[in-house]
Structures are given as C-alpha cells and as structure tokens.
C-alpha cells in the first residue's frame, strides 16, 4: 500500500531572481512583485489589494515600472519573472502614485482611510488643485445610507476598490447582495435597483465592512460613536479570541473601548476564517454587555 502524501505543505520551491531598485531579490516562482518588494524591505502602497481577496488591480496605486513594459504594471497582481528589472521609485512611478492618490482625494472623503494618509503625504498629493477657476471638481458625495441597526453605508467615502463586492461574492460569502452598478465616474456599489440592504440578499456577515479600507461601509456602533465624536481608536484594545457560536472555531478580534466591545474583526491570515465571519460572530456579542436586549434579562 502506498502511503498517500499530505500535499498541504507542498509546492516546489523554484526560485526566481529579479532586481528591485537595483537590489537583487530571489523569491519563489509565482510570487507577486508586491510580495517580492516586501521581501526586499520596500513598502508599497495598496488600496484594492488584500491578502484574503483575489487581486483586482483596479486602484493602480501599487504600480511599478518593469523594464520592457510600455506601461506601468500593478505589482499586486503581476507575478515575478526571471531577470525582471523593477523600479518602484522612479519619477514615473511616483507620478502615477501621486496622481492616483490625488484623484481619489479630489473626489472622495478619505478622512477615515487610515492606511492612505501616510501615502498622501509621501507622494505629496495635492487634491486641492482640481478645484480651480470657480469650477469645483466633481465628487462622489451622497448622504450616508442608514437602513438598519448593524451597518451604515457612506458612499462619499467609497473609492470603488471592489473589496466589498469580492467579500460579499466570489472571495468569501457568495451572497452577492452588492455589485458595481453604473459606469465610469457614476459607477457605485449597489444592490439591485438600489433597494435597501434589509430588502436585499444581504445576510449581514459584515465581511464587506471587514475589508473596506475607507469607512464607506462600517459598523453602526462605530458610526454612532464617530457621530458623537467618541470614537477613540488609540484607546482601544484588540483581543484575539474564538467565537462562541457553532463549532467551526472562528478567530475574533474584539475591539474594546471603555470596557465595551465596539466592533469585531477577524485576522485575514487565519486558516479558519481568512478574516471572514458570519452575522453571529460579527454582531452576536451584544449579550456580553446588554443594553436594550428585548428578550433577555440583564446579567445578574
């Protein structure tokens, strides 16, 4: 009898050699340029990329220059090739990154896009220069959609990175309650005919919130605290634990402010959840600190 092998740790490690900013780097075949840069200690801005989602390479903020390519290439999606010569800091790259960031900042509210701030500074983005001569630049402004107790959607903050669509659909939840509708600058994340989330297929897993980089979809708890100017991320603790519902063993990160849970996330690199949860894990914690639960008595 031949003993079948466990291929979980398999994948033949053929290495590929490339140059990044003049530095030699050797990484396994199939690695993306973005990962190779990481290996070389080079930080790359990303927006639509996430380790638990399929790269869509739409934001273009991670572009790099690859010798022999007419245009810049998205480092998050392009695999390394033997002998590739990559430049991440040329004038051309800096220009495109700056422009992408400026474009976004000129039309979208990035106040809560924590991860983008330093890059806006780094690339000296100046979104103000699009409002000139009494001709204001078009923005994506609209009123926040507050349609239920768990989520809010504030598409004034939406950079259309497709992450929420991927998390709702192919990459995790397979519910497809939201998709991109419309075209061009008028493209929006939307339910069918823009019906409310409660009227849509949404099952409130919150995986869209989990991947949103700008606060365009967020927990109602966070939204309310922010409205009350009481959202204090610097004072929050994050504790990793395991969900109490069902036996799958999903890892939770409990974000706690003033000894109260204010939101729940899951680590994207964990083999059980890959960062994704269900409605119970994401929102079912309220009994720990009951406020106005209709059918439960207060804790003794």
């Amino acid at each position: 009898m031949t003993l079948p092998t466990n291929p979980s740790g398999a994948a033949s490690e053929v290495n590929v050699n490339l140059t990044v900013n003049g530095q030699s780097v050797s990484v396994p075949a199939g690695t993306t340029i973005h990962r190779a840069c990481e290996r070389a200690g080079i930080d790359t801005p990303t927006l639509c990329w996430a380790e638990n989602l399929t790269p869509v390479n739409v934001c273009r903020v991670c572009v790099v220059e690859v010798e022999g390519n007419r245009t810049l290439v998205p480092s998050c999606a392009r695999a390394v090739e033997e002998g590739m010569v990559v430049n991440t800091d040329s004038e051309r790259v800096r220009h495109s990154r700056r422009m992408v960031l400026e474009f976004l900042a000129s039309g979208v509210d990035l106040d809560q896009a924590e991860g983008l701030r330093r890059w806006l500074d780094e690339y000296e983005a100046d979104p103000g220069r699009y409002d000139q001569d009494g001709l204001p630049a078009r923005t994506v402004y609209e009123e926040p959609k507050v349609q239920d107790n768990l989520y809010i959607r504030d598409y004034s903050r939406c950079v259309l990175c497709y992450k929420c669509v991927e998390a709702c659909g192919d990459d995790a939840q397979h519910t497809y309650a939201i998709a991109v509708s419309g075209r061009g600058f008028d493209a929006r994340i939307s339910t069918e005919f823009d019906v409310t989330l409660p009227d849509s297929a949404c099952v409130y897993c919150g995986n869209c919130i989990g991947v949103c980089p700008t606060g365009a979809i967020q927990f109602k708890t966070e939204f309310d605290l922010r409205q009350a100017s009481d959202w204090r991320p610097d004072e929050q603790t994050v504790t990793q634990t395991v969900c109490s519902y069902c036996g799958v063993g999903c890892n939770l990160e409990l974000h706690v402010q003033d000894e109260r849970i204010v939101k729940v996330t899951s680590p994207a690199d964990h083999s059980v959840t890959h960062g994704h949860l269900c409605i119970k894990g994401r929102f079912g914690w309220q009994y720990v600190q009951p406020v106005d639960a209709p059918t439960r008595q207060r804790r003794p």
Partner: peptide, 18 residues
C-alpha cells in the same frame, strides 16, 4: 437559522434585519 443559536440565550441579545 443563520442569525440565531440554539435556545437564543446568547443570540437573543442582538437584533438584526434577517
């Protein structure tokens, strides 16, 4: 059901649209 759990001791503590 997706949003609830057993006798609702825990899941009864939150309300939701589904």
């Amino acid at each position: 059901a997706l949003d609830s759990y057993n006798t609702g001791v825990q899941s009864g503590g939150y309300d939701n649209p589904i």
